[in-house]
Design a protein around this nucleic acid. Structure first.
Lengths: 238, 238
DNA sequence: GACTTTCAGATTGCATACAATTTGGACAGC
DNA sequence: GCTGTCCAAATTGTATGCAATCTGAAAGTC
């Protein structure tokens, strides 16, 4: 299992914070489903994988816990989060509140340069959609989320950006668990349409479309509260 | 300095997570200004105060860092956050996005029982306003924030509730740093008005008033970007 | 045979020891 | 007297060791 992606920079930046780097790597692995919900992340294992002590691994896991990507149970350990349907609804409810505002802010601040980068990103996204295989699916999910994160970045509010980081990451988990069609490909065309409206300066319509877009993503989910006595949830995924 | 408030429960609940308890205590101390922005929180000192090792103290500080209440600089330590005017604006911009939605959600879910608890809380708030002294001021700020947090709690979205926890806490810091009149007492009457509108089922008006309320709080701040070459910011507070 | 009990292995919680880094001041040089 | 260098105290970063807790299975009992 190649969890460690190209660490790329072992020499220069002196690894300015190892637990942060581990967090990022694990985060990406969770977001694009290389680590399935429910997977146990033991401190020793993580430490061994990244060649650090349990102390550092533990710090990384604690950060992920705060982001809601990992759930730790006292004296039992850390596991990749397995959001319930209710949590899923709350995640999307939160996004419905925040993202229209982000679109509005982004509309006011976006530069032609930004727009060029967005178009590039969307073309990249399209490329993944047309490819086959699980790797392409992962890249597609990641790219789809990145569009929303780029908007948050342009909006220029660091706090909202962090909230969105968390919400988008957790949305990936939810889609992995409850998505019907993997990723609704209609989502991609909506990204294009939103960008167009923003470029045209029609912030109101762009925000409205974003709202619909989120609705569409959520509509693609199957959020039936698992019947039965909910015997540990995880049992279903094994 | 009595940082440690009545720890009340040393025997039974087996201190189900000490770093969490420390976080809560420090958090409260920061929120009601017993710990001023810029104050250094060394691991050893915190550990000694709570009679735990640096490991546990460090975990608590890391949590506070994630919440934005503490800022840690590598190899230098942790300090109570000292938000810039720009951060302050972002905090309130975020609240303007989220809180109207919370009011709307709370309007739909609030029970007569909740309303009774709100009234109690508002009366408590009023009591602090009419008292004199720094302790009363602290209690007033805390109570004022608690109103917003109670709304978030009633709204029934755990994620938004956590976001609000962070935003309200950081708002306290901002008000401590940039507030002109301490706490605008008009804010209190607005709390009453918001609750009335919610009780009457007028969610739209309640949300609008909440928006105004946030505007009023922010209007009471002096967010001039400190002139000069911003020589370390902190220098001003010494 | 099914159920309870006990215990060993494994894992986390926490404390401590050591290494790396920063900081403030003493001291030397100009 | 002022500036620059170097060093020691203090503080953080990390690794590791030990105690506490949980898990799963073997052994014992009904």
């Amino acid at each position: 299992m190649t969890l460690l992606e190209n660490t790329s920079t072992p020499p220069d930046p002196v690894t300015e914070d190892r637990s942060m780097a581990i967090r990022e790597t694990l985060r990406n692995a969770i977001i694009d489903r290389r680590l399935a919900p429910g997977t146990k992340l033991s401190e020793a294992e993580v430490g061994a994988l990244f060649d650090v002590s349990r102390t550092v691994a533990r710090a990384a896991l604690q950060m992920l816990t705060f982001e809601g990507l990992v759930k730790t149970e006292r004296n039992r350990g850390a596991f990749v989060s397995h959001p319930t349907p209710e949590e899923a609804r709350q995640i999307f409810a939160s996004r419905r509140l925040i993202e229209p505002g982000i679109v509005a802010a982004a509309s006011e601040r976006i530069t032609p340069d930004d727009i060029a980068r967005f178009r590039e990103q969307l073309i990249e996204e399209e490329r993944h959609i047309n490819e086959r295989g699980p790797a392409a699916r992962r890249a597609e999910i990641k790219a789809s989320g990145d569009f929303h994160l780029m908007l948050a970045s342009v909006a220029g509010n660091a706090i909202l950006q962090r909230f969105m980081d968390e919400l988008v990451a957790r949305s990936s988990l939810v889609i992995a668990l409850y998505g019907r069609s993997g990723v609704s490909s209609c989502g991609h065309s909506e990204h294009f349409a939103i960008l167009d409206l923003i470029e045209r300066g029609d912030a109101k319509r762009a925000a409205d479309l974003m709202l619909h877009h989120i609705d569409h993503i959520e509509a693609d989910l199957d959020l039936q509260p698992k019947q039965g006595v909910a015997l540990k949830d995880v049992l279903a995924t094994g």
